[in-house]
Amino acid sequence: MNMTKKRLIPRLLQMALVVVAVYFTFILVFDVLLGQLIPKSLLTMYMVFVIAGVVMVFTFTEQGAQELAGPIKALVEDPSRKMVRNVVFVIVPLLAGYYTYSSMLPSFEAPVELRTIHPAPPNKFKAYGKSFNLTTLENPYRKFEKEDPVKFKELVKEGGNVYIQNCQYCHGDRLDGKGPYASGLNPTPLNFQDVGTIAQLQESFLFWRISTGGPGLPAEAAPWISSMPVWQNFLTEDEIWKVILFLYDYTGRRPRSWANE
């Protein structure tokens, strides 16, 4: 029991610093370094557990608990700290009041919606008046990549034209989801440069998604907002397949296929 030892930083402050440090580490790692922000609801719960863990570590010895409680006790009981006490006793209720006020204040934020992350594509879908089977559907032009590179290049170029005439307004001329209209959409248009998007998908999935658009998403994926048009009404089947070639070619990604796995 070494109570006389003076610490450089008081334990209470240490604890607060650890909690704050963890909090900002989360923010730093997710929001800044990884560029995928951490949802507020999740961060709140994370912090509850982190605080629980930190409090446990700081109080499991008698000495630690006393050092922690000491300043608080002194604040309440020590006559020489009257001024600080009064200030704290005014500020704390005010903070609580402010928190309650701000959390009860009506906001324009739409209510939080639950989304199904993986909207399973249908196995079959109807487009252009016929039925497509997603599991066996393949890009009819993909074979030219090996067989006839010159023709393939031509096809990609045609796909590029289709893209520039139709898609780039939202998905951007660099395929990064930052087209002129993108800022008006929520959720934002997909960024094809991202490894998590088209690189994870098969060409048949893209064909389904493009030809049937937002309205073609399955009911089980609701609530799902997508403002993508039903492209089968505007593009031909061939044009869609060519634009898919272009998407992969421009981004340098490979479509996912079961054959390689």
């Binding site: 949802p39 994370y46 557990f49 989304r115 929520n186 934002t188 997909l190």
Partner: peptide, 28 residues
């Protein structure tokens, strides 16, 4: 415990949704 607790479907506000560009979270 935090890993165990992380839900599969995240509760996102609309602005977060917009920032993430969709309901996918690559890390979580």
């Amino acid at each position: 415990f935090l890993v165990w607790f992380t839900p599969h479907t995240l509760v996102l506000t609309n602005s977060e949704l917009k920032d993430l560009g969709g309901p996918y979270h690559q890390i979580l």
